Computed example of a mutant assay.
Amino acid sequence: MSEIILHLTSGCGPDECRWVVGQLAVAFGKEARDAGLSCELLEGYDGLPYSLLLRVNGEGAMAFATARAGTILWIGDSPFRPHHRRRNWFVGVAIAPQPESMIDLKEEDIDYQAMRASGPGGQHVNKTDSAVRATHRPTGLITTAQEQRSQHANRKLARLKLALLLEERREQSQAQGRTAEWTFHKQLERGNPVRTYAGPRFTVRR
């Protein structure tokens, strides 16, 4: 069984793009189930998420993820500004890097600290020290994870977040002063979407 992590991001888009990220996670979950795959949101969220991580499991997970990686376009009226003229909203989907394959993310360079989970999404583990803070000593980057039920799973998630941050740093460097998220978002608008959804039910347009 293969496991793929999808990273959904609104880039530097407005609240509408953040809303699309949340709705797209729901749409992907339904599409995965229809394809005989499991699709799990790795972390809970409140409000409008800038980005989300989805774990897709099952035979064909890579093909499912590859078909959705790139620019996603949602066509619809703004749920926040009824009279806004814009109807095309872009978000990005990428296959998250595998921490084990990143030469600048060595396990011996990471300090893990167990802590008490709290806040939205952590209610089921509040009475145990299952949450994890991960610190990458060479860069000083810090991530936390608390949504998973076990400390081992949260440790794995925290390391994945470090991998995403390190990859973002590389993109920022290559962008020569422009932030990776902004560059990515502008590329999304210029590129051809790999999938297009329309309307409040996120119907796929062929």
Rank of each mutant, 00 (worst) to 15 (best):
V56F: 01
G191Q: 15
G36D: 04
G119L: 01
S10C: 11
V26S: 12
S118A: 14
L8Y: 07
L160H: 09
R170I: 06
E31V: 00
V125F: 00
R116N: 08
Q113V: 13
A117G: 15
V26Q: 09
G119K: 05
V91M: 07
G177R: 03
L188I: 00
L37P: 05
S101I: 01
Q172A: 08
H124D: 14
T139N: 08
Q113L: 13
G122T: 09
F64C: 11
Q146N: 03
Q123D: 07
Y112F: 14
E3Q: 14
A198M: 11
S10D: 02
G11L: 02
I72G: 03
G177L: 00
A175D: 12
L24N: 04
H83F: 09
Q172E: 15
S10E: 05
Q98N: 14
Q174T: 07
K106P: 05
A198Q: 15
D77A: 11
H152R: 12
T139L: 02
I142G: 10
L52G: 11
F184S: 13
T183F: 01
Q172M: 10
S173V: 01
A131N: 06
A27I: 02
P97S: 07
S10Y: 00
Q172K: 11
A35S: 15
L105H: 08
I103L: 07
A65I: 12
L164E: 04
A35Y: 04
W182D: 15
L162N: 04
L165R: 13
E189V: 10
E189Q: 15
G122H: 06
Q148W: 01
R205W: 00
E31G: 10
P99M: 06
E189G: 01
S118V: 05
R159A: 10
R86S: 10
K186L: 05
T143C: 12
K161C: 10
E171C: 05
L48F: 04
E100Q: 13
K127L: 04
E43C: 06
Q176D: 09
V20E: 09
A134H: 05
A94Q: 14
G70E: 06
K106E: 08
I110D: 02
R137G: 04
E16M: 02
N57Q: 10
V132K: 11
L8F: 03
R169G: 06
L188S: 06
S101C: 01
R87A: 04
H84Q: 15
R178I: 02
D111C: 01
D129I: 00
A117L: 04
T143L: 11
R86P: 04
G121L: 08
C12V: 09
N126A: 15
P97D: 09
N154G: 06
S101A: 15
R170T: 11
S78T: 07
R116I: 06
A134C: 13
A25P: 11
I5W: 06
R149M: 09
Y50S: 11
A145P: 09
Y45D: 09
D109I: 06
H7D: 07
V93W: 02
G76I: 10
N57H: 07
R133Y: 00
M62D: 12
A69I: 04
R149A: 13
I72C: 05
K186P: 00
N126T: 09
A94W: 00
L157P: 05
K106L: 14
R116K: 14
A114Y: 08
R195L: 15
R201I: 00
F90A: 08
P49T: 07
D15H: 03
